[in-house]
Design a protein around this nucleic acid. Structure first.
Length: 923
DNA sequence: ACACTCACG
DNA sequence: GACGTACGTGAGTGTA
């Protein structure tokens, strides 16, 4: 480890903005704007090739919230949000940095400038020379004997003379001048009436700011004197704002900044993915062929519904090569896989279809057995075997497809491409550069309709796709796709690829037009590979423990059943039948207070049975029976049967395009509703265990939805409550009921908690009354008291409802649309329902955005920290990871950091994390 | 296929 | 004054 001689620190965030505004718009073949990325990449390339620096880092801002905004909330507060076209470029610039194998440095709570100051000081202390690549005047205070700045856009070095020219004083007095003249763009106040010239003159005369302020009364000009005397404190605050911290703990050690040789292949892959062909030529690496941008850019107009179709069955090497070449030339190809089943871990790849222009597609069979001679049923013309052409060997096909799939310069479009990636991953094939028409539809029209391929084709093109059942049959007669005759397989599979391409041309241009680029590019698309890894990882369950639990539950069900039957005077009935139970309770036993459901049946829900429990012993027994029965059938029995024999783990499937709010959903099995609320249920959670030598880590956001309420609705009382870090429900109780926090008992706290939750759900007196078991009038009074104490919540609710009425949707803080159908329904109940959903939308959806962002960022952060931990599960506000036992502590630190920094709100985000051998104890 | 119930956030 | 309500999911069971 040699000490650095020349350290170059690049102000990444500053550069992005200047490049964005300074360069003409450029887009990638898929429509993503990349002009700032291009500018950054060329700058970095030039710098690395021309500079003699031996240590380099690119430093970024993380969020707006820094230690400065803590003591001066207006600091940089009135900056408009970044332009829509710039947002997707932020992560790409970091990708660019990594493609050069250069360190990205950022730290929550500090600006890039503070980190630069810190590294500069450390470098000088080690005897090195420092170059700061930036033109930001805020960094000029750092210039000195061994520190210079370089403006990469103007190709100009900034040393002491240049600083003097700008500020009229030397670098050591720059902060004093800035403190006086302020900075409108950063909201640094300064002293009113004093500009840069006067400031320089004053500092020149008095030496420094403190002396000037102390002797301000000596100033001759009356206005200037009064202003300085009156605003001395403002000047001191301003100095604190502009003075850079150079004592930040170094997030990355200096020696990590050492320049490494660039791997041309990594760099070429990155450039290819961005469509930077000229840069690849400069790199002297063989560029994967890419079509011209014009040819690859999707047509902006909807595709005519009726296009003549030409579908080709690919059974020769020539034809296969021709299709692959065409896809490569086009730079964009729709892609679909056909398999033997729905479970991607067990299904086998049967064939692949491709499409590069509407109406034209091919199907490449990979695993087709000739239709089995099904006795005498096969009566077709000349017999199937005779006209079944020979298909290419699977290995040939896969070997040829592999480079196409891995080629970052060719965009692969799929519909629910997660599934295809799973299938390919099972064969050791990697798919890079992807788009997903299901996710495009979801971000554009989530909540308006479903996002299945068939549904979308019907909706957008009035086209009915060939039904799967038509090809494979239904029920007992259903066959797997490998048994489908090739002509039918071609018609079905090629149509899917064709339609996927058409949908892409229709939907992708809408992203920019409807301002959904950010949601799609930063939350949805990058999540796909992350989810693929999670699903493939699965989670280990203790089979023996579940079986033992199941047996235990079975015994107790038998006992409870006997008791219930005895209580029904020995009259046998099916405990699982709500209909029979209703008759027993309200007819045979004649218990009072029966309610009917909307279909006229006796209602027998848990709330009803709890009411009845004090009149008769049977309902309580039945509640116990129901609980155990649910646990046994839905969890212990079902989970055991879901264990994948090959991995010994359960692999859920996450749906990315199901919910109306942006949440994920989990199925087959659903691992987002594993019991926890009751003692018996928790035992099931204990059966989710870590692999040998590992621990499970559970990290969950504390009160994320309520924090979002405080932030989105701007509720001052809640914000300060969260900032204090104390028990939020107790504080709410104290504020709403007017009792000091020490006087809050569990009952008051429980009521406050129910109101807090009610707010999230779009509160109503009826709902709150039902939740708390109190009269509606009382609930109404609570709500009134809450509104009184937190008046901003009422504005938020009205504002949100109005937004929904105006647009038909509401939006989350990341810009996701949540549709609110029924908001103008003439039926009052329907409308009220839509209104509550509208109020809930930005809250639940915002929380979903935040955890998605954390999930997208986490894998790289773990990798960067050299940690082998992997994400296994997401449960809306919780992430479950598996980590080697020895690495638990550092893993928790990274997970916490990434999750808490996933959004910067006006309230802190808090993540609580624990580790144990099983999920029950880790939580 | 639908209703009901209940597991989770 | 009555309507029917907490928001978002998925799964198992019974019934038609």
């Amino acid at each position: 480890m040699t000490s650095p001689r020349h350290v170059t620190l690049i102000d990444g965030s500053g550069f992005i903005f200047r490049a964005f505004h300074g360069l003409p718009p450029m887009t990638r073949p898929d429509g993503t704007p990349v002009n700032a990325v291009y500018g950054f990449t060329t700058m970095l390339m030039k710098l690395l090739s021309e500079s003699d620096a031996d240590h380099v880092a690119v430093v970024f801002d993380t969020s707006r919230k820094t230690f400065r905004s803590d003591f001066y909330p207006d600091y940089k507060a009135h900056r408009p949000p970044a332009p829509e076209e710039l947002v997707p470029q932020f992560p790409l610039v970091r990708d660019a940095t990594r493609a050069f194998d250069v360190c990205c440095i950022e730290m929550e709570g500090f600006e890039a400038d503070d980190l630069i100051a810190t590294y500069a000081r450390a470098a000088v202390a080690q005897g090195a020379k420092v170059t700061i690549v930036s033109s930001d005047k805020d960094l000029m205070q750092l210039v000195g004997e061994r520190v210079q700045m370089f403006d990469p856009m103007k190709n100009r070095v900034i040393g002491e003379p240049e600083v003097r020219e700008k500020f009229g004083v030397g670098p050591d007095r720059v902060v004093d001048v800035q403190a006086l003249c302020g900075d409108a763009s950063d909201n640094v106040p300064g002293v009113p009436g004093i500009g840069i010239k006067t400031a320089a003159q004053l500092i020149g005369e008095y030496g420094d700011l403190d002396t000037l302020l102390a002797r301000a009364s000596e100033i001759k000009q009356p206005k200037r004197r009064e202003s300085l005397l009156e605003h001395a404190e403002l000047a001191r605050i301003s100095r604190r704002l502009v003075l850079l911290r150079d004592d930040v703990p170094l997030p990355v050690a200096m020696d990590q900044l050492a320049v490494k040789p660039v791997n041309p292949e990594t760099l070429a892959a990155f450039c290819a993915a961005q469509g930077f062909r000229s840069l690849m030529n400069r790199l002297n690496v063989k560029a994967p062929p890419v079509a011209t941008m014009a040819a690859a850019t999707p047509a902006a107009l909807p595709v005519a519904p009726k296009v003549e179709t030409r579908y080709e069955l690919v059974v020769s090497e020539d034809a296969l090569d021709r299709w692959i070449a065409e896809a490569t030339r086009a730079g964009t190809v729709a892609f679909d896989t056909e398999t033997t089943g729905l479970d991607p871990l067990r299904a086998q790849l049967v064939g692949v279809s491709l499409s590069v222009e509407p109406g034209r597609a091919c199907y490449i069979p990979i695993l087709h057995s000739p239709p089995q001679a099904q006795g005498s049923l096969d009566l077709g013309g000349g017999g199937p075997a005779a006209d079944t052409p020979k298909i290419l060997p699977a290995k040939t096909t896969l070997d040829r497809l592999k480079p196409l799939l891995a080629d970052p310069a060719v965009l692969k479009i799929g519909h629910n491409i997660k599934y295809d990636m799973q299938i390919l991953a099972g064969l050791g094939l990697v798919l890079t550069s992807l788009d997903d028409t299901m996710l495009l539809s979801y971000v554009l029209d989530g909540g308006a309709h479903g996002h299945g391929l068939d549904e979308l084709c019907q909706l957008h093109f009035g086209h009915a796709n060939i039904a799967f059942s038509e090809v494979c049959g239904t029920g007992k007669a259903q066959v797997t796709f490998d048994r489908v005759p090739l002509d039918k397989a071609l018609a079905y599979a090629a149509e899917d690829a064709d339609m996927t391409l058409r949908l892409h041309r229709l939907l992708k241009p809408r992203l920019l037009a409807e301002r959904m680029v950010t949601v799609y590019e930063t939350l949805e698309r990058p999540l796909v590979p992350v989810i693929v890894e999670m699903e493939r990882a699965g989670i280990k369950v203790d089979r023996a423990a579940l079986i033992a639990l199941s047996e235990d539950f079975g015994r107790r069900l038998g006992e409870l059943e006997n008791e219930v039957i005895a209580l029904n005077n020995g009259e046998v009935f099916n405990l699982g039948s709500p209909q029979q139970l209703g008759k027993v309770l309200f007819e045979t036993l004649g218990l009072p207070g029966g309610k009917k459901t909307k279909t006229g049946q006796w209602a027998t829900g848990a709330d009803v049975l709890e009411e009845l429990a004090h009149l008769h012993p049977l309902p309580a027994r039945l509640l116990d029976w129901r609980q155990i029965s649910k646990l046994k059938s839905t969890y212990t029995d079902a989970l055991v049967s879901q264990i994948n024999p090959a991995t010994g783990r359960v692999h859920t499937s996450y749906s990315l395009a199901t919910t109306t709010t942006g949440r994920l959903s989990s199925s087959d099995p659903n691992l987002q509703n594993i019991p926890i609320r009751t003692e018996e249920g928790r035992k099931i959670r204990h059966a989710f265990v870590a692999d040998a030598g590992c621990k499970l880590i559970s990290a969950d956001y504390s009160q994320i939805e309520l924090r979002l309420v405080a932030h989105v609705a701007g509720i001052e009382g809640l914000r300060t409550a969260f900032a204090s870090g104390a028990d939020i429900h107790a504080i709410t109780a104290s504020q709403v009921f007017g009792v000091p926090v020490e006087g809050i008992d569990s009952s008051l706290r429980r009521r406050a908690k129910a109101i807090n939750f009610g707010i999230i759900y779009g509160i109503s007196p009826f709902g709150l009354a039902a939740q708390l078991g109190i009269p509606q009038g009382e609930a109404k009074a609570y709500i009134a008291a809450y509104f009184q104490r937190y008046p901003e919540i009422r504005d938020y609710m009205e504002r949100t409802k109005e937004e929904a009425r105006e647009n038909g949707f509401v939006t989350t803080l990341f810009g996701r649309k949540v549709y609110t159908p029924g908001i103008k329904d003439k039926n009052g109940a329907m409308r009220a329902f839509a209104e509550r959903a509208a109020i809930n939308g930005p809250i639940q959806g915002g929380a979903a955005d935040i955890i998605k962002r954390a999930m997208v960022r986490l894998p790289a952060a773990l990798k960067e920290a050299g940690l082998a931990a992997r994400m296994l599960l997401q449960v809306h506000d919780e992430l479950v990871l598996e980590a080697p036992e020895a690495a638990v502590e550092p893993t928790i630190a990274v997970v916490k950091r990434i999750m808490e920094a996933a959004a910067s709100l006006s309230v802190p985000l808090l993540v609580e994390a624990g580790a144990a051998d099983n999920w029950g104890e880790a939580h």
